[in-house]
Design a protein around this nucleic acid. Structure first.
Lengths: 198, 198
DNA sequence: GTCTATACGAAGATAGAC
DNA sequence: GTCTATCTTCGTATAGAC
């Protein structure tokens, strides 16, 4: 396998593991096992665990923006009313949840925002999304705020795996329905047959 | 010092450290140093690091609910219109940010929601807040969702220390103003003279 | 109630072979 | 491009003294 392919593969594996266990909670050996290679090779490829984590959140952010830009382009060419864009972007976000660990890795990066190195990347990334929504998508600052708010609630609910209680706890069910709406099916599907069957 | 006092003091120190570095990123020795005692004593008092972390997030949650209930009681006795409650609760939340690490520890617990033990506590805690807002404060499910959404955006922005860019980055300034509004002063103050002077 | 000493097991990173 | 072996450091937890 070529070096570039291997990098890509490791980043994908790392995204999954970092998403589950966070920066500190993840070992380079877990990433290596997930990628099917040896632990020293992971380090060799990226230099340090920190460098790998930074690549992971940058890649996640890049994918998020690519996906948003796709939706925006489609929206523009469809001639739909402006209000139709918000749910499109929301759906695109939920779709990315299916890319295992992607949105969780981003959240892990955010809560590690106190770290001098990770913090810089986290702030930069968040502001990039903000700038996209305002400047490219044309949202008013208040609309951006609302969009991001719902996005953050969604993200936190996914981090704590609230949908796993769907059908088992009435409050959790109500909350999940309210927060995910018609996207709930997709979310439950993503969380495995266990939750989906409930 | 009596055992109960010591426990309280350790939990306070642990809240600060866990809030900054997360569950995995925190060492019992850092907690010990922050509390001014020896590392084995921390373990002795709580059994395991995990047990200590659970106490930290449960204590944080308890403080949050106590604070919310205070605001609710005050609101009820003041005879103000119903809409006045939301900003009161919002202010109470921001006030808690001043208790170093409290809200950050909660967020750390949330992103560690994939952990079998921490996850249970995180879901339970989140639902407790939800139930309070709906059943005690009398919010409609949709109002609860909006309130929690803004709370989560606020929390994430605080985790990545976005207010530290206030006055230095125009997008960050705009975002901070929108999200924190008149509470911005309080937030900047909390984040130290560095940010406040900018 | 609190400490020192320490056992024991990770985990990140390096060296060097193939 | 990829591995095995290993160094070294760190971190949780225990034992046992004061």
């Amino acid at each position: 396998m070529t070096s570039a392919e291997r990098r890509e593969q490791i980043i994908q594996a790392a995204t999954s593991v970092f998403g589950d266990r966070g920066y500190h909670g993840t070992t380079t050996d877990q990433v290596a096992k997930a990628a099917g290679i040896s632990q020293p090779y992971v380090v060799r490829m990226f230099g340090t665990k920190e460098a790998l984590f930074l690549e992971v959140i940058n890649a996640a952010l890049a994918m998020l923006l690519v996906s948003f830009r796709e939706q925006l382009a489609e929206h523009r060419s469809s001639g739909e009313p402006a209000e139709a864009l918000v749910p499109k972007l929301g759906n695109a976000f939920i779709d990315l949840v299916k890319t295992r660990g992607l949105h969780r890795s981003l959240m892990q990066g955010f809560v590690s925002g106190g770290d001098p190195v990770i913090g810089v990347a986290a702030r930069r990334g968040f502001l990039e999304v903000y700038a996209f929504l305002r400047d490219e998508a044309g949202f008013a600052p208040e609309e951006v705020q609302t969009f991001l708010s719902y996005g953050m609630l969604t993200s936190v609910l996914l981090c704590i795996e609230m949908p796993s209680l769907f059908g088992r706890d009435s409050d959790a069910t109500e909350l999940a329905c309210a927060a995910f709406g018609h996207k709930l099916d997709l979310v439950l599907e993503t969380m495995g047959p266990d939750a989906a069957s409930a």
